[in-house]
Design a protein around this nucleic acid. Sequence first.
DNA 1: ACTTGACTTAGAGCATACTCTAAGCGCTAT
DNA 2: ATAGCGCTTAGAGTATGCTCTAAGTCAAGT
Lengths: 137, 137
Amino acid sequence: MNARYKIGEFAKLVGLSTYTLRYYENEGLVVSQRDDNGVRFYTDEDIKWLGFLLHLKGTGMKLNDLKDYVKWRAQGDQTIPQRRALLRRVQKESEAEIREREANLAVLRRKIAWYDGKLDQSISHDESFEDYLKRFE
Amino acid sequence: MNARYKIGEFAKLVGLSTYTLRYYENEGLVVSQRDDNGVRFYTDEDIKWLGFLLHLKGTGMKLNDLKDYVKWRAQGDQTIPQRRALLRRVQKESEAEIREREANLAVLRRKIAWYDGKLDQSISHDESFEDYLKRFE
DNA sequence: ACTTGACTTAGAGCATACTCTAAGCGCTAT
DNA sequence: ATAGCGCTTAGAGTATGCTCTAAGTCAAGT
């Protein structure tokens, strides 16, 4: 246990590039420790944090919001109300986006079904199925 | 009927800016007709098309894919198979994104619930509700 | 010794989709 | 006649989030 990962290995573990990890560190989203030579290292704790951060990001949460979250997290438990309020807002926004997308998808699905019907007709009325298949040879 | 809308009015009707409409026209996503003075006008047909285009866009479909779609549409019914294939691809991608987002949202919801529990505890164990409320004054 | 991978700062480049400005001109309604 | 809207081209700017390069240094492993 107590594994130490250098940035290259860590990058593979979390599925980001080393560029992105340094970028995130600059932005204050991730912290790293340094060994005697000033080389970054990460721990299993950091893997967990990155995993959670990527989940938040995957809900559509912006880096700026993540920065607030990280800032509050560092300030301890008294900022839990702010953090919860932030996550709730992100939740609402994300749910709204999903609903919108579903509505748009419904339209797209109907259009595909309409194309299906069109192509069915072109099979059953205009030509035999054999002839139809020939068109794609 | 046979209403003609100039770009300003049309923009309001479809919820886009005049800049964006001209941009879309440049990109080949929308066409407009011109009056005797070279001024763009749009019809109810164009409102329908814009509506559909925005639904497609709302599924996450990229402008480049929309350009292909529009190009094929202009070529007539023989491109229906291509259009259907494109929309199916977009559908799959969009559904996959929604599933991902839902999974990430599930994590976010659990975190919020965890904060809820933390705050419940901090009310019921560490201080009175009165004291708790005072913290936010 | 040499390769590999780490470090730094600063800045450019990329992708997507707009968004707006400049500069100059034309039509229409008040 | 003046405001308001429309037209043009060309290009700059904005937002988000990376992605990569340059140029030079350093340390560990083979």
